[in-house]
Each structure stands twice: as C-alpha cells, then as structure tokens.
C-alpha cells in the first residue's frame, strides 16, 4: 500500500514540475521581438510639423560603422516615413530645415548587457545632422541584453539646439528585428507597434 501511495506522490511531483515555464533567455533574444519606446513627456509633438530622414540605415558592427542598404533596410525606412506621415508630419529635405530628424541604426553583432545612453554615438560618421553631440531629456532605458539585428530609431529635435546639442525627443528600440529570423512583415508590424504604443507622437499638418 505504501508503495502505491509513494508512486502516486511521485507522479504528483512530476505533474508539479510540468507547469508553464518562461522560455530561456538564449531562445528569446533571437526569436522574440521586443518593441521598446520612450518619449519626452515635457514636449508637445504638435509643435513640430516637418521631418527629414536619411535614405540609409547606420550599421554598427563591433567598433565599425557603415551603412546598410538592402531590401529590408528599405522596408524599414519606408515604414518609418509612412508612419510619421500618418501621424501628420510632413517629410522634407534635410536642407529645408526640418523640425525633426530621424536616425535609424541597426546593430550587427554587438551583445550589450547594460545599455549606456549614447554609447554608440562615439562612432565616426554618426552625425547626419551636423551637430557634434546628442542629448536625452530623459534617461533612456533599453532592454538590457540584445543581439544581432536590433534596430534603434531616434527622433531628434532640430528646432531646439542648445550648446550645439540636439535632444532626442522619442526613441524606439526593436530587438532582433534585422536578423534573418524575421520577415519584412515583421519589420512593418514592429515599426507600426512602436508608433502605436506612443499615441502622443502626432501633429496636425
């Protein structure tokens, strides 16, 4: 009888261990898309009407930077521009003094465990707007570990330049987006999600 009871007890313990578990981090960082956004709550985006953006994605590979120009980067840039226009912003040339500048960065191989604000700004060639430094009016908190293919979108305030510093008013971090694991539909959906979860990011034309 005791043997039977112990068997029942053992089966119960097996059942206990079969409950839902969070997938391990190693699997999540390559498969799960994470869309993180933050904006400056002290400003009103209605004060901004126009934006400009480069036609390439800054590409960080270790200590080197280059530009990314392929079908996926085109989809990425087009979707960001489309979402900005949907929110009421007008796209104009960089030379026409836009109110906002959009920087798009993709990370190739870096695995960073702790995000340090502006860590990637020290790389050469990362100042498309001609200002030597960037600043955040808030402390940007990114997902604390990420791997290849993560995308960072910064919306830079070109109207307000203080001490040669332009401020980032909105930023989005999409983990793992530009890996080969995700489709172009994932790219558009993730960019859309970044805008969707920031309802304040809109203006009237």
């Amino acid at each position: 009888m005791k043997t039977k009871l112990l068997t029942i007890l053992g089966m119960g313990i097996i059942a206990l261990t079969s409950c839902t578990k969070y997938p391990p981090s190693s699997g999540r960082v390559t498969q799960d898309l994470v869309v993180y956004t933050q904006y400056d709550v002290t400003i009103n985006f209605s004060d901004y009407k126009t934006f400009s953006m480069p036609n390439t994605v800054v590409y960080i590979n270790g200590k080197d930077t280059s530009t990314l120009n392929n079908a996926n980067s085109t989809v990425l840039l087009n979707r960001i521009a489309a979402d900005m226009k949907t929110r009421g912003f007008e796209q104009i040339a960089n030379t026409a003094k836009p109110d906002l500048g959009v920087n798009v960065t993709a990370i190739k191989t870096t695995t960073t465990t702790v995000y340090s604000p502006g860590w990637y700004y020290g790389y050469p060639g990362y100042y498309p707007w001609g200002y030597p430094s960037y600043g955040y009016p808030y402390y940007p908190t990114y997902v604390t570990s990420y791997s290849a293919g993560s995308v960072i979108i910064d919306l830079v305030d070109l109207k307000t330049v203080v001490n040669n510093t332009v401020m980032v008013r909105w930023n989005a971090f999409i983990r793992g987006l530009m890996t080969n694991l995700h489709t172009q539909a994932d790219i558009t959906n993730s960019v859309d999600q970044a805008f969707t979860q920031t309802p304040a990011l809109k203006t009237t034309p």
Binding site: C19, T20, K21, Y22, P23, R28, D32, L33, V34, V35, Y36, T37, Q38, Y39, D40, V41, Y138, T141, V143, Q193, Q197, T198, A200
Partner: peptide
C-alpha cells in the same frame, strides 16, 4: 500554489515617463 501563463505581444506602459514595451 503557483499559477502562470505566457502572453505574447503584450504592451506594458508607464505613461508618466512616456515608456512602453511590447514583448512576450
């Protein structure tokens, strides 16, 4: 006792600081 569940594509927001994260 322990109850648990995984939800995909859930958005967690902190409106006061302008932060939002969509993830599993």
């Amino acid at each position: 006792q322990r109850v648990s569940q995984i939800y995909t594509n859930e958005t967690y927001s902190l409106p006061a600081t302008g932060q939002a994260i969509t993830a599993t």
